[in-house]
Simulated assay, not measured.
Amino acid sequence: MAPYAVCVRDGQLLLARSPGPDGTPEWVLPGGGMEHGEDPYDTVRREVTEETGYRIEVTGLLGIDSHRLVGDPRVGRRLDHQGLRIIYEGEITGGELRHEVGGSTDFAAWHDLDAVPALTRIRLVDTALRLWRERPPHGRLADRPVPRQMNEG
């Protein structure tokens, strides 16, 4: 389980850059791994600060993204993995934009919302933006993707 934040300001989305599975950089939402016993609310605030330099106030719960990756054991991948990602809305309350050093990301930047589709990004960015735009009352998008094989591109 991992919480992430959608921070939109002046028509721009705050993203962090992370090396993808093949080493190609890809844009991700700030957020990520919870420490044992940590509350997701505290995790997302800590992770945003670590990855971007900003402090945020959590202003809402946008939804939950559950995804399942089914791997092919013949290529050395996990047989089955399920991830649960909590998507919060966050408002910048302080700090200054900076890049994470020695962490899971190496760069942070604001991107125009219209430019996001052209970025190399993980699927969660699109899911989170849809939750932010549509704000389904149940916190779940109507069309959920089918599990994909981990050895597919």
Results as ranks from 00 to 15, higher is better:
25 P>M: 09
4 Y>M: 01
24 T>L: 09
105 T>N: 07
24 T>V: 14
100 E>T: 00
124 L>S: 11
121 R>T: 10
55 R>S: 11
5 A>P: 09
37 G>L: 05
109 A>F: 00
43 T>S: 13
138 H>V: 14
110 W>H: 08
45 R>N: 01
153 G>H: 13
84 L>T: 15
80 D>K: 07
68 R>Q: 11
11 G>F: 01
115 A>T: 14
82 Q>F: 07
90 G>D: 08
53 G>P: 02
42 D>L: 12
63 G>F: 02
65 D>S: 12
45 R>H: 01
31 G>H: 09
113 L>V: 05
138 H>D: 15
151 N>A: 13
130 R>T: 10
13 L>A: 06
6 V>H: 05
64 I>T: 13
83 G>T: 03
22 D>C: 00
46 R>D: 04
116 V>K: 04
14 L>S: 01
4 Y>N: 01
33 G>T: 15
29 L>R: 08
135 R>M: 07
71 G>C: 08
93 T>N: 05
36 H>F: 13
50 E>T: 03
108 A>P: 03
74 R>W: 06
3 P>D: 07
84 L>R: 06
103 G>E: 02
56 I>Q: 01
37 G>Q: 03
46 R>F: 05
19 P>T: 09
74 R>Q: 12
106 D>H: 09
93 T>E: 11
100 E>I: 00
54 Y>F: 14
104 S>N: 08
19 P>I: 09
39 D>Q: 12
29 L>M: 10
6 V>S: 04
84 L>C: 13
114 D>C: 07
5 A>Y: 03
129 L>M: 13
133 R>Q: 14
53 G>H: 04
89 E>L: 10
114 D>N: 10
98 R>G: 08
140 R>L: 12
123 R>F: 09
149 Q>W: 14
85 R>I: 01
47 E>K: 13
110 W>Y: 10
112 D>Q: 04
100 E>K: 02
43 T>E: 04
61 L>H: 07
58 V>T: 10
150 M>K: 09
66 S>Y: 06
68 R>H: 02
67 H>T: 14
103 G>P: 02
117 P>M: 06
122 I>W: 07
34 M>Y: 01
84 L>K: 06
13 L>W: 01
42 D>T: 08
93 T>S: 11
28 V>P: 00
82 Q>S: 08
70 V>R: 08
96 E>H: 06
131 L>Q: 00
135 R>C: 07
147 P>G: 11
50 E>D: 09
26 E>M: 13
109 A>N: 05
87 I>N: 03
36 H>S: 13
77 R>S: 02
97 L>R: 14
43 T>Q: 03
